[in-house]
């Protein structure tokens, strides 16, 4: 909770300073852009957080997003009458399939997730490129209903952002209130103890990878709806931003602690920095440096907090004895 509060505070501070510098930063259009800009990263960060909580990582999300976005475009090219619901389901299904491939490789080959998803990052992207074969899908080819979803708002909130909020709330509730959700934390906290307490470790990690894949698929559909123009390079390199958002959001990289809310706030903070720095007339070079510094600060804070808690608990015991 403390960590989520800290990130929230940093976010408020950033928005406040930027708005004082340039009041237009918070007008209706700009607010909408901020939310839209964060949407895809939030969806990916929620999936990544679940994976990282189990002491794994999914580096293939960018490629899965690209594949799913392009598939959505292809689907509409082939059948422009496809209902939006079906397109969303198709994207999610494709992502789920990719996640299942990742999960199966980890479970069957007993190879660390880092290596498996580094491999599938290239494999999925390769499939994407060879399928696209240089083709670009233009916004004009997309049905207008789908494009409208990319810009429509409900009570001032973009529809796409509502997807992200729904995903976040569901994931947060699941991790908090369901046995399998708590077991994800247990696995990340101590995999060996998890095995001894009869938790199906392999199966849960598989599930986490599948969820991450499905959410990356959803992010692909959202990407298609937002940008309209698609080629095979969509989402290239976004995986590192996602991992950064999760770490900044207070999810321990060695698993076991943190929340999807924190990860979502981390994603919101990173994307807001991206929009705020140009307004503040700061060199784009610094944007990367700021993100890097944030990651280091988050990790440093994590260490310091852990050490302090351990010290305090030990001290309490020493006095009590």
């Amino acid at each position: 909770m403390v960590r989520e509060l800290g990130i929230g505070l940093a976010l408020v501070l950033l928005v406040a300073v930027t708005t004082i510098y340039n009041p237009r930063f918070l007008n209706a259009q700009s607010r909408k852009d901020l939310m839209l800009g964060a949407t895809i990263l939030v969806v990916l960060a929620v999936g990544q957080a679940i994976v990282v909580i189990t002491r794994n990582v999914d580096l293939s999300v960018g490629s899965v997003l690209g594949l799913s976005a392009f598939a959505t475009g292809k689907l509409f090219l082939a059948m422009s009458e496809t209902p939006i619901v079906l397109a969303v389901l198709a994207g999610v299904g494709l992502g789920l399939l990719c996640g299942i491939v990742n999960g199966a490789l980890i479970a069957v080959a007993r190879v660390p997730a880092l290596v498996v998803t580094l491999g599938t990052l290239y494999v999925f992207r390769g499939v994407d490129y060879s399928w696209a074969a240089g083709q670009q899908i233009n916004a004009a080819d997309m049905p207008s209903g789908f494009k409208r979803m990319g810009t429509a708002t409900l009570l001032g909130i973009p529809v796409l952002a509502l997807f992200a909020i729904a995903v976040l709330v569901f994931a947060g509730y699941y991790l908090r209130n369901y046995r399998s959700g708590r077991e994800m934390y247990a696995i990340g906290s101590d995999p060996e103890a998890a095995r001894l307490s009869g938790i199906p470790v392999g199966w849960r990690v598989f599930t986490a990878m599948a969820i991450s894949g499905a959410l990356a698929g959803l992010a692909g559909v959202l990407h298609a709806a937002r940008f309209g123009t698609l080629d095979a390079a969509a989402g290239n390199g976004i995986e590192l931003q996602v991992v950064a958002a999760v770490v900044v959001g207070g999810v321990a990289i060695f698993g076991g602690s943190g929340s999807v809310y924190g990860a979502a706030l981390g994603a919101l903070l990173l994307s807001t920095i991206g929009s705020a720095l140009p307004v503040l007339r700061i060199d784009p070079f610094w944007q990367q440096a700021v993100v890097g510094a944030l990651i280091l600060a988050a990790i440093g804070l994590d260490r310091a907090l852990t050490a302090r808690i351990a010290d305090r608990l030990r001290g309490r015991r020493a006095r009590g004895a």
């Binding site: 934390y185 247990a186 990340g188 307490s197 938790i199 321990a252």
Partner: peptide, 13 residues
Amino acid sequence: FPDLSVTENIFMG
């Protein structure tokens, strides 16, 4: 599980 509460440790699973 060091990250989880004592209660959760007892009832995990």
